[in-house]
Design a protein around this nucleic acid. Structure first.
Length: 751
RNA sequence: GGGUAAUUAGCUCAGCUGGUAGAGCAUACGAUUCACAUUCGUAGGGCCGCAGGUUCAAGUCCUGCAUUACCCACCA
């Protein structure tokens, strides 16, 4: 055997367990002996294996409480299953986190007075990679400090070449299957980040604004965005609206700031007669809903706002103004022309970028999309067939709800950080702007056939025309496209792992990324392997501060998990994430709570200490060991209250652990250990030993037996102290042939 | 507009398939050289948000309402 654990805290001398002084050493004892590797305990049957692919934290910062909380649950399950005799793999990783890291790293550059343009794409990528590696190393150290029993030799970064291989293969096959396409659609454009975003990457922000009532030919229309009127291509009313029925399918003449022109009037049932005046100006180039109406009615599209949020060249005197400036200018002009009827205050929702909270400008754009209809339908089927169990169950409905939204997924981002899309244009790709201000994509203008080649590697020459003038698409893939393949991509990266561990058992995460991630993993895994990637999804609650607010760096209300670990120990911190907390229920965390669990850890130490001190007074251990052994075999069962309650407790624990009720399980063991075992059983034995010294061996045997089993049951929750005491018991020869490490001891089973 | 959760002791929260209300912290009083003051004991404190309903029995199931939080949604 390899490294031994050095027991430098003398349990007979030390009254207060000092977690910080021993936890690191315990960890390296585990890791250096390879205990975290599934190979340490190979099992031939697939059902005897247990795998969790750990959610990779973003490699752009430190470990925060959310990560620590997740890891505590993941490790809890891993250690529990390992002790049940399963071949267990916790596979760790780090996420390149596309747009988020790009924003973070841009800020890093700004500190040095540089912008990304200054250093160029390649250098930017390399430096961001280096930056991510540095952060990964820090995070890895912090994860270890928490006691995470993951196999770090298998750790992967989401941009690892081995992951890339899988991601690109999937991209190519989805393209060939017609599921990925290059399309021209209205997308969410973040003006600040200068990239397209998927719907899910945006969020609603409630804002006070104005609703302008404007004379519009024979109508009065109400709009919050008068500047987009320059891009109107129709007027829509509800066909049921008696006021306007007669105008439908006619053309009306408009006099407005841009002169006199004609617009068709169409009938569309999505127009709400109750809103404003019941007349909608249709601006397909700058409104998602209007774009849909335009598609249904074959309306032309005009573009008047560019990617920088400025009025485009085709807007006459407004050209070059920022959107808000143009809005004011147009309102002023309308007013002067006597066309502004009235202005109302309104509270409405606008879309903002999920990352930078900047304004989203809906724009028509060429992007890569994934056709979602079938992928979502298959995922819905898998869920309704009960292939995946959510804990708590209600979140399954939440997931289903999202899967019913039909939108295609925009997967291209105009960033530098991430996977550059494996698509090549023969003869390049250019943009031209037509008379309506619309951007059109033109292929092949620099000498080529203009075909798009999608391939995992850059082709030597064009398979269609043989020319060598191939230009790669400049965009990168949405980070969730690669993350969505994480469960199988990580396993494919190591020889036989996929065969051995896929599909996995559990996904453990927070409900905030069910849509972003969980749903997409399910869809992509079903696409590629026709199998769900995991059978259970456990959702932990979100950690809040003492006032019930979400902890965040910007608010400065965050607790640093590393500081708490140094103060109270990793075991105590882990308990504070788990004990008494219901799944998916947000909870508050503050130092007094952690301190309370530190006290519990110390209680474990002192209960053990008492028993060791008693053992020292024995002349020989033979009878005691016999008692322990027969208790482990199930003799003496139910002979007294102490043992029968202990058995009942073990059964309860097993039931709670197997049904994913970890918070209750933590509560159960906390209460049992402290208030039954310590407060009643040990106190009682103390008296017994005094009154009946002749039964000392037997009575002590019962205590040792209970301590032994309790350490095992506690171990998934508090791995460090339980290992430490397990080793001390080992020195007394108490579990000699079972296992040197408690990690591979047998979880107590009660018939 | 739709959905989901929360509402239980002063505070923070548990409470699985319905069977006479629980924990931690806080408070009060007391104990203790004998495992632990990071300890132990005792006590106070709850019409389990409100209103109905189902049931022999409801914090637990159903309906409605109120407040809060989060999520979804094309209100221009």
């Amino acid at each position: 055997m390899g490294k031994k654990l050095d027991l430098k805290l003398d349990i007979k001398e030390i009254k207060q367990y000092d977690a910080a002084s021993v936890e690191k050493e315990i960890f390296s004892y585990w890791e250096e002996n390879g205990f975290f590797k599934p190979e340490a305990h190979k099992r031939s049957k697939k059902e005897d294996r247990f795998t969790i692919i750990l959610p990779p934290p973003n490699a752009n910062g430190n470990l925060h409480l959310g990560h620590a909380s997740g890891y505590s649950y993941q490790d809890l399950m891993g250690r529990y299953n390992r002790m049940l005799g399963r071949e267990t793999l916790l596979l760790p990783g780090k996420d390149h986190a596309g747009i988020q890291t790009e924003v973070v790293f841009e800020k890093e550059l700004a500190k040095k007075g540089k912008r990304k343009k200054d250093i160029g794409r390649e250098a930017f990528y390399d430096q961001a990679y280096e930056f991510s590696m540095m952060n990964s190393a820090i995070a890895r150290g912090q994860e270890r400090r928490l006691g995470l029993s993951a196999d770090y030799e298998r750790e992967l970064f989401t941009l690892d070449p081995r992951i890339k291989k899988t991601v690109f293969e999937t991209f190519v096959s989805m393209y060939n299957d017609g599921l990925i396409y290059r399309g021209k659609r209205i997308i969410n454009w973040c003006v600040r980040c200068q990239t397209a975003l998927a719907d899910i990457d945006t969020e609603a922000k409630n804002e006070d604004g104005f609703l302008y009532y404007i004379e519009f030919g024979p109508f009065v229309i109400a709009t919050t965005r008068p500047e987009t009127k320059l891009a109107d291509t129709a007027i829509a009313v509800n066909p049921k609206d008696k006021r306007y029925q007669k105008y439908i399918d006619t053309e009306v003449e408009i006099h407005s700031v841009e002169g006199t022109y004609k617009l068709p009037v169409i009938g569309d049932y999505t127009v709400d007669p109750e809103f404003g005046t019941g007349v909608l100006k249709v601006t397909p180039g700058h409104s998602v809903e209007d774009f849909r109406i335009a598609q249904n009615h074959n309306l032309p599209i005009k573009t008047v706002i560019d990617q920088y949020g400025k009025m485009a060249a085709n807007t006459g005197k407004y050209a070059g103004m920022k959107v808000l400036e143009a809005r004011d200018a147009i309102v002023k002009d309308l007013d002067e022309m006597g066309l502004l009827v009235k202005t109302e205050k309104i509270n409405h929702n606008i879309r903002v970028c999920e990352r930078c909270k900047g304004v989203i400008e809906p724009l028509i754009s060429y992007q890569w999309f994934i056709k979602m209809e079938d992928l979502k339908a298959n995922a819905i089927k898998a869920l309704t067939d009960g292939k995946i169990h959510f804990h708590p169950k209600r979140q399954e409905k939440n997931c289903l709800h999202w899967l019913q939204i039909p939108e295609d997924w925009c997967i291209s981002r105009q960033l530098w950080w991430g996977y550059q899309i494996p698509a090549w244009y023969c003869g390049g790709k250019n943009h031209v702007i037509d008379k309506d201000g619309n951007v059109e994509e033109v292929y092949g203008s620099t000498g080529g056939c203009g075909k798009i080649i999608v391939s995992t590697n850059k082709p030597e020459n064009c398979p269609y025309c043989g020319k060598k003038n191939l230009v790669q698409d400049e965009d990168v893939l949405d980070t969730w496209y690669s993350s969505g393949q994480w469960p199988y991509a990580t396993l494919l990266a190591h020889d036989a792992d996929f065969e051995r561990y896929f599909p996995t058992q559990v996904m453990e995460t927070g409900r905030d990324i069910i849509f972003f991630w969980v749903a997409r993993m399910i869809m992509l895994s079903l696409y590629k392997y026709n199998e769900v990637p995991f059978s259970d999804v456990y959702l932990h609650g979100i950690v809040l501060d003492k006032d019930g607010k979400k902890q965040s760096k910007s608010k400065g209300n965050g607790i640093d998990p590393m500081q708490e670990i140094e103060k109270f120990g990793a075991d105590a911190l882990r308990l504070s994430f788990i004990v008494g907390n219901a799944p998916d229920q947000d909870y508050r965390l503050y130092e007094e709570k952690i301190r309370g669990f530190r006290n519990f850890i110390n209680k474990i130490w002192n209960a053990s200490r008492f028993i060791m001190l008693q053992l020292d007074s024995l002349e020989d251990m033979t009878q005691l060991l016999t008692t322990v052994e027969s208790l482990e075999k199930g003799d003496y069962r139910n002979e007294n209250e102490t043992l029968s309650l202990h058995n009942a407790h073990l059964k309860t624990m097993r039931k709670l652990m197997d049904s994913f009720r970890f918070g209750r399980a933590g509560d159960e063991i906390y209460t049992y250990f402290w208030h039954r075992f310590c407060d009643i059983d040990i106190e009682h034995m103390k008296k017994e030993i005094q009154d009946h010294p002749e039964n000392k061996e037997e009575n002590l045997g019962i205590l040792v037996y209970i301590l032994l089993t309790e350490l095992k049951v506690l171990h998934p929750f508090v791995p460090f102290i339980t290992e430490y005491i397990w080793h001390i018991l080992g020195e007394y020869g108490i579990h000699q042939e079972e296992s040197e490490t408690i990690m591979y001891s047998r979880y107590p089973v009660i018939a």
